[in-house]
């Protein structure tokens, strides 16, 4: 049948740091961290305005206590959106992985032309690419977001050969054109 030819199949198993990284990226795209740059920009602008008000009052904070409080709140909110939220997202991903008995199980993936199937001991999931809101590739994982409540599917690259990775990457680029993104994550410590 047209559209049902199997492109490839492979087995995979997730590690906690891979799921946490996937969840952090999901949160940046679709979760609380999404739009953090413009949100922090708004607070930054308000903070600058408060600083100007304080400056116009000769830096006498007793004359403009409300402006000082607002400035402190803006500084906190900027650091919250730029630094604290992404860190919390990664921690939350680790927390979710530890709370789940399913995420650490072996999964078999069947990649078809217009959909993929994930099968594990307890779960079978079929998702069409048209249902996906995002397909993100990094050096270590493929992250597929979509379906009911933007479900996160993280595929580890550890068990996939180099040629399979290339084939899978090209396949996702072709089938999820608008949703596909290639991200190179920042790494502080290279292993």
């Amino acid at each position: 049948m047209i559209g049902n030819s199997l492109v490839m199949s492979f087995e995979s198993k997730l590690k906690i740091r891979e799921y946490a990284e996937g969840y952090r990226l999901f949160d940046l795209r679709r979760g609380k961290s999404s739009g953090r740059v413009w949100k922090s920009s708004v607070f930054f602008a308000i903070g600058i305005a408060m600083m100007i008000i304080i400056m116009l009052n000769s830096w006498d904070i007793t004359r403009v206590p409300v402006a000082c409080v607002i400035l402190l709140v803006c500084i906190y909110m900027c650091s919250y959106y730029l630094y604290m939220l992404p860190k919390r997202a990664k921690l939350r991903g680790e927390h979710i992985f530890k709370s789940s008995k399913l995420l650490s199980k072996n999964c078999k993936y069947y990649i078809y032309r217009d959909h993929f199937i994930m099968k594990s001991e307890n779960e079978t999931l079929k998702r069409y690419y048209t249902e996906l809101t995002d397909c993100i590739e990094t050096d270590d994982i493929f992250l597929l977001i979509g379906g009911f409540e933007n479900r996160v599917t993280v595929i580890s690259k550890r068990y996939i050969t180099q040629s399979q990775r290339q084939l899978l990457s090209e396949h996702f680029q072709r089938e999820t054109i608008r949703q596909y993104r290639r991200i190179k994550p920042k790494r502080k410590n290279k292993q």
Partner: peptide
């Protein structure tokens, strides 16, 4: 499109409201 079969021990938690019962397999 989705099939899940787990022993009840895999259930993380459940909350019952006025109109709904939600069953969590993990925190998400």
């Amino acid at each position: 499109s989705h099939k899940l079969s787990v022993p009840p021990e895999y259930i993380h938690s459940a909350v019952e409201g006025k109109n709904t019962l939600i069953i969590f397999i993990d925190n998400e």
